[in-house]
Simulated assay, not measured.
Amino acid sequence: MTTAPGLKDYLATRRSIPAFQMCEPGPGQAEIEEMLTLASRVPDHGKLAPWRFIVYRGEERGRISADLARLALEAKPDLSEEMIKVENTRLTRAPVVVAVVSTAAPHAKVPEWEQIMSAGAVCLNLLMAANALGYCSNWLSEWFAFDQRAFPVLGIRDNEKVAGFIHIGSPQVPPTERPRPALSDIVTWVGSDS
C-alpha cells in the first residue's frame, strides 16, 4: 500500500492556534466557499447533510460580540472588567468564524447520534480545509454554544445545536506542541494480526 506523505506528515503535526493568537489576513469569500465545500465531504449516512454553516465576518462580528457580552452580563452582573473585555471580543479574535450547526433530528433509518457525529466530522474537516488553504484554525465551543438565549443573536434555530465555532485566520505565532495520549492508554486490541 502506498501512502500520501504530505497528508501523513500533516496529520502527524496538525495543531490548532488559539483564536486570540490569530490576525489578518483572513480568507475571502471564494476561499471560505472552498473550505466549506471541502468540509462538507464527510461520512453522512443517508445523505441527510444534518448540519449547516453560519459564517461571521466583517463588522457584524463586533455587533454580535457586544450582544453576547450583554447576555453574559445579564447572567452574571458581577463580571470582572477583564471578563467583560473577553465577552466583547468573542467573535472578533479571528478574521472569520464559522458556526457548524447540527440539524440532527429523529429519522427512520439514521440514528441522531450518527447525524451528530457527522457534524463533528465537518468541524474537523473545516479545520483541515482552512490549514490546506494556508490559514490557521481553532475549534471552540464556548458558553453561547449552549445558551439558547444567544441563539437568536447567532442565527441559530431553537431545534439546532452548535457543533462548534471554527475560528480562521493567520497565525501571530507558530504553533506549539502539546502532550498527546499514549496509545497504551487509549487502545484496546481484540484478536491478532495473523
Results as ranks from 00 to 15, higher is better:
191 G>F: 10
88 N>I: 00
153 V>D: 03
145 A>D: 11
83 M>V: 01
90 R>T: 14
139 W>M: 10
26 G>N: 05
72 A>K: 12
50 P>N: 07
146 F>Y: 15
128 M>K: 06
33 E>C: 00
33 E>P: 00
169 G>C: 05
22 M>G: 09
42 V>N: 02
105 A>N: 03
117 M>Y: 12
111 P>H: 07
116 I>L: 13
172 Q>E: 15
184 S>F: 00
165 F>M: 12
73 L>D: 01
104 A>M: 01
89 T>R: 14
84 I>N: 02
79 L>I: 04
105 A>F: 02
181 P>G: 00
161 K>H: 13
39 A>G: 03
70 R>P: 00
66 A>F: 00
126 L>V: 11
7 L>C: 09
186 I>K: 04
67 D>Y: 00
153 V>R: 09
125 N>F: 08
8 K>A: 14
163 A>R: 02
148 Q>T: 14
143 W>E: 10
160 E>Y: 02
112 E>R: 12
104 A>L: 03
137 S>C: 07
148 Q>H: 14
26 G>K: 08
28 G>C: 08
88 N>L: 14
38 L>D: 06
36 L>W: 11
71 L>Y: 07
169 G>Q: 07
96 V>T: 14
22 M>I: 08
15 R>D: 11
155 G>A: 10
120 G>R: 03
129 A>I: 10
31 E>Y: 01
126 L>G: 10
152 P>I: 06
192 S>W: 05
5 P>I: 11
174 P>C: 01
91 L>T: 02
96 V>C: 02
69 A>Q: 13
102 S>Y: 03
70 R>Q: 14
154 L>N: 06
117 M>E: 11
79 L>A: 05
187 V>T: 08
77 P>I: 04
74 E>T: 08
193 D>G: 05
68 L>D: 07
15 R>M: 08
123 C>I: 08
74 E>Y: 01
148 Q>A: 09
46 G>N: 07
127 L>N: 10
